[in-house]
């Protein structure tokens, strides 16, 4: 059997729809963030496809009748070729545990799983390199804290949280979520965090990594029960943190902001407590919820700052953020006005 392979970029509307139809025929939704698809055709009919979204391969699907290793391997060869050409050499994919072996035969290695329903794989041994790098930052102590933050943008609320964590720990590791799906770019977010915390002495700020997965890249198309998406994502993220990252740094505690009002985040915090403490080969991590500081009767949060930006109320942002963040926002808003 010979298959013809071709690329379908997001810009070709007619062919894009055909890919969508094919995915539907195998009971999958199309991931909205795919930039380019590779499709295999037999007699002008799509029989397999796979998409590239940033560093993540998504929507890899084969026609039921042709599910043999031959087509899967040819498809993956083409998809990898396209990804490499686009300069994406370190690739990830999320899949069902059933397909672990198929992707292993394509050079992908298992990293972590969630609830026996989702696994994360990568095509390099970069997680080992990353772990090795992390070990250089290890500080021993009874309480080694950790915080994972997006800081979109960095506020006095964040600052308060980190201060509290530093007071209670020998050392604190702060991880900044890396991906660029936020309003503020990673570069800006990272810079504001560094500048806003420069006076804290028992703190390491980590540039984030591909191993702190962002919700934005977590695919949902193959998870049938949509109510499970959040918990599967959380579990995968926390399993990686606990089993791979935390042990390298001897982390004993994880600090989070208290969320009495937001049900989703509260749920997340409760799940985190449970998952990071349950029996495992890696040592347990205690989750500590810290109270939020308020200004004007309301907690200070990044979303509050973004809302004020939208309404052009620069003067009200001033008491919520450190001067460095304020300076950036002021510049951004004056540029916006100039337009």
């Amino acid at each position: 059997m010979s298959f013809v392979f071709s690329e379908v970029p997001h810009t070709s509307i007619v062919r894009w729809q055909k890919v969508k139809d094919f995915l539907q025929s195998v009971d999958l939704e199309m991931s909205e963030d795919v930039e380019i698809f590779v499709v295999a055709k037999e007699d002008d009919r799509i029989v397999a496809c796979g998409g590239l979204s940033g560093k993540v391969l998504k929507n890899i699907a084969l026609d039921e009748s042709l599910r043999g290793e031959g087509l899967a391997l040819s498809l993956m060869s083409e998809l990898l070729k396209v990804a490499f050409r686009e300069g994406r050499h370190e690739l990830f994919l999320f899949t069902k545990p059933d397909y672990q072996e198929v992707f292993e035969s394509c050079g992908f290695k298992y990293i972590e799983q969630a609830h026996h329903q989702v696994i994360l794989m990568e095509n390099s041994y970069n997680i080992d390199l990353y772990k090795k790098r992390l070990r250089k930052y290890k500080h021993t102590g009874d309480v080694v804290g950790s915080i994972v933050m997006n800081c979109n943008p960095f506020t006095l609320g964040h600052r308060f949280l980190v201060e509290q964590a530093c007071e209670r720990s020998h050392w604190v590791h702060l991880f900044v979520v890396k991906e660029d799906a936020s309003f503020f770019t990673f570069k800006d977010r990272y810079r504001l965090i560094c500048e806003g915390l420069v006076d804290l002495e028992n703190l390491t700020i980590h540039e984030g990594s591909d191993y702190i997965i962002s919700k934005a890249t977590f695919p949902t198309y193959f998870i049938k029960d949509k109510r499970q998406i959040d918990s599967l994502y959380t579990e995968l993220d926390l399993n990686i943190f606990r089993n791979h990252l935390a042990p390298q740094l001897g982390i004993t505690h994880r600090f989070v902001g208290e969320e009495p009002l937001c049900a989703v985040t509260n749920e997340y915090n409760q799940q985190m407590k449970k998952l990071l403490a349950r029996p495992s080969e890696a040592p347990p991590i205690e989750v500590v919820e810290l109270g939020r500081i308020e200004y004007g009767g309301e907690p200070i949060s990044a979303s509050r700052v973004r809302k004020l930006m939208q309404h052009n109320r620069l003067e009200e942002i001033l008491p919520l953020v450190p001067p460095t963040t304020y300076a950036l926002i002021a510049t951004m808003m004056s540029k916006e006005e100039a337009k």
Binding site: E69, L73, M76, S77, L80, K81, F84, G107
Partner: peptide, 19 residues
């Protein structure tokens, strides 16, 4: 530069060269 050649198909080899 980083480069590759080949396929994952049977009887073939997929080779990546990384500086």
């Amino acid at each position: 530069e980083t480069a590759h050649a080949g396929t994952l198909e049977s009887s073939d080899a997929f080779v990546r060269v990384i500086p």
